[in-house]
């Protein structure tokens, strides 16, 4: 109900750049998830191993971005430093499932 506490670092984030970074993250994740899905389907992963594959791969990607692109200082690029690891993961999961099902079907279910 009272005014917001001014956080001196809050004004340091430019909205346009934050949005751009978010967009880039989503882009990377969706392409990556699709490829992961294709791989999982080809390998014939099922049930839990499929999901574990996705989350491991996703974590690996997050780590790569964190280390190489965000130069280990995610607070420079995102409002919450943990966003590097969580942004776009769920959206990626849906495309992962699609491509996983597709490739799995094509290779293992059909003659």
């Amino acid at each position: 109900m009272s005014g917001q506490q001014i956080n001196p670092d809050d004004a340091l984030y430019v909205d346009m750049f934050i949005a751009k970074n978010s967009q880039t993250m989503t882009f990377i994740r969706s392409s990556y998830s699709a490829i992961l899905g294709i791989a999982a389907g080809t390998l014939g992963l099922t049930n839990w191993s499929g999901f574990i594959f996705y989350f491991t791969g996703s974590a690996f990607l997050s780590f790569l971005i964190f280390a190489i692109k965000a130069k280990a200082r995610p607070s420079l690029y995102f409002r919450q430093p943990l966003d590097v690891f969580t942004e776009g993961v769920l959206g990626g999961l849906l495309s992962y499932i699609l491509f996983w099902t597709l490739l799995y079907g094509i290779i293992h279910v059909y003659d």
Binding site: T26, S30, A34, L94, S95
Partner: peptide, 17 residues
């Protein structure tokens, strides 16, 4: 339905946000 949800990100890739 699977396609409906899964292709969202593919469309974002092709058509831009």
């Amino acid at each position: 339905f699977l396609n409906l949800f899964g292709l969202q990100s593919v469309f974002t890739l092709i058509l831009g946000s």
